[in-house]
Amino acid sequence: MFKQLLVALDLTEMDDYLLRYVLFLAKKFDTERLYFIHNIKSYDLPDSIDTILMEIGKPLEQLVLEEMNEKVERIFSDSGVKINTIVKQSDSTAHTLTKIASELGVDSIVLGKKNAFKGTGIQVNKILRLTEKSVLLIPDYAHYSISKIIVPVDFSKHSELVINIASDISKKENDDLVPIHVYQLPRWFFPYVPEEKANKSLLESAKKSYQKIVNGTNINVDCQFLSGQGKGIARTIYDYATRNQADFIVIGLKGRNQVTGLQLGSVAAKVSQMEWHVPVLLVR
């Protein structure tokens, strides 16, 4: 998952947090190669900027590249990881990122997620929809540690892949792996049937499904079963993660109801938009 990464920088202070987190990741998972990319948006820049550019005599791309190199050097100089910095200029960052990720053949795309500024949120969703790679979302103020990994599972085919990936991640330094499953009575459930009974049988069948998934793998942790009644699945996951001091989440990009490849599951979409301080790995 983390051997070759494409990291998107946005030239704000967020980059420093992101870079330090990526450093931590690189050390933990022996990352081989890192690509840092920034896409200059083709807006008209104000005249004041043009004037300065003329003074310096260098094109904007070069300045950006220099700045990026400086930042990256400062943090990664002794890391032993091969570094490349890339600057592009296009209308759509999402499309450029997706294309480059594909061309370079990286394992995952790493994005910073600013909780405050909504502008970032729109882009994230677009990238999630376009790319065929997994995406790691790092919020500002994330802890530089991975000790408790939460994996929401919905027992779809994709779930099997997701939980195995999470398990591999946890095995690197023997971190806690906590699979969780949120069950909910369907919203149109007839109000006259006792809820308790229905919940109980939902729970039973969920437990069986979990057994089926972990059968034959080397995963031997129990799954936590949570009721999502009233809150919704994404919210339940969020609350559980915060209450149990999880510091990493692995979730499938596809939902149980996705038919074809490149669509975004509803829970994944909500989870990626929520404002929280835990990194989320969305597995394609």
Partner: peptide, 10 residues
């Protein structure tokens, strides 16, 4: 953002 960067580089 770009403005800050350019000024810094200058």
């Amino acid at each position: 953002v770009i403005k800050d960067l350019v000024e810094k580089r200058k």
